[in-house]
Amino acid sequence: MLILGAGDVRSVLDGAEQRVLAAVRESYELHALGRTSVPHSVFLRFPADTRNRIIALPAYLGSGTAVAGVKWVSSFPDNVAQGLDRASAAIILNSMRTGVPEALLEASAISAKRTAASAALAASTLLSVNPSTGVSLVGCGLINFEVLRYLRAVFPSLDTATVYDLDRGRSESFATKARSAWPTLAVDVVEQPADALAAQRLVSLATTATVPHLDTAHCRPGTLLLHLSLRDLTVASVRSSVNIVDDADHVCRAATSLHLAEQETGSRDFIASSLGEILVSDVPYVTDEQRPIVFSPFGLGCLDLAVADLVRREAVVRGLGTRLDDFLPSGAQVFA
């Protein structure tokens, strides 16, 4: 068993934005081509506790070197008030030859960066004709900081960020950190979510909301909303927008805004396409300049596997991690 801790994982992923973007893009394309297996995520919830959850995301990715495994990710929002990360995660990768578990990776960075890469890939694909120079970030946590990092990787001209969080202190801390990371980036902290929605035509929503609380009335025509937290937008806003998803079966469940829209309408006709379908079509996406475009990614387990496999292979080359040769029973075949 190869064990890769947080430091090992970050040493591979830091500065590897283009490699992560390429891995995520390939995963989306393989999914659109039917070369993945992504069962529905399993939500572990707790009696009398509506906020906390732990989710299992099993998946198979049929790339050149096939990979299978599972991500086990928790979300405990009250951690933030205690100075802890809201989410924590681990990934197990299994051998496709014998089925035995062969690698265990600390996965908080993998999860955050694949989410950010997914958002940036969607933005660069859906705004390919008219790239963005600014972004509004609603929710000032780790995910939106990584989104900002990856958006700058796909939009080198992006020079402005408007930020909002319910906690003004978090907004200010986020702005200070962003200015330190990118000294040429102009960062503006606003007082209301409506101000953020109106400020830029590219918006990233990464909050801990459990019920819809935002509408698109304040957005500019043709605004692209990266609806990463999935439960921010009202049903009316979803229905009046052009909706792009990662996978309709996955995103229309667990009380997401799109699930609520499906329940209200009795169909999924409000979903225009998936990102993978657009990528494999090889035809540049033409933005609707009058209606908002909403990208709602449930977060497919095959994306996590793609990034985890990238990390594992690079770690083996560099000699990173800890090997437990006696973790598996005698006779089990391990990754080499």
Rank of each mutant, 00 (worst) to 15 (best):
E277L: 02
A161R: 14
L151K: 04
S11L: 05
S63Y: 13
V317D: 12
D249K: 15
T265Q: 13
S37E: 09
D165Y: 04
E264K: 08
A103V: 14
A48W: 02
T256Q: 10
V317P: 02
S37A: 05
A123T: 03
V307C: 07
L158Q: 15
H40F: 01
G321Q: 02
A120C: 10
E106H: 01
P292C: 03
L13Y: 02
A48E: 08
N79V: 02
R97N: 07
P193E: 11
D304G: 14
S124D: 10
A217G: 08
R35C: 04
P212G: 12
R179P: 06
N94S: 11
Y150M: 13
T208R: 13
S63E: 15
F335E: 00
A161Q: 11
G83Y: 11
L33D: 03
A89Q: 06
P183L: 08
R170H: 08
A66M: 02
G276E: 01
R312V: 13
P212R: 11
D188C: 07
V42G: 04
R45K: 13
T184H: 13
R152Q: 13
L61H: 14
G331K: 00
S41C: 15
F76I: 12
V251T: 02
S180W: 02
L21T: 03
I271G: 00
A48F: 02
A217E: 04
C140W: 11
C219H: 01
L279S: 03
D215P: 00
A56Q: 11
L230P: 14
H40T: 04
R313D: 06
P156I: 08
L185Q: 11
V100M: 15
S75M: 11
G139A: 07
D159W: 10
Y60T: 15
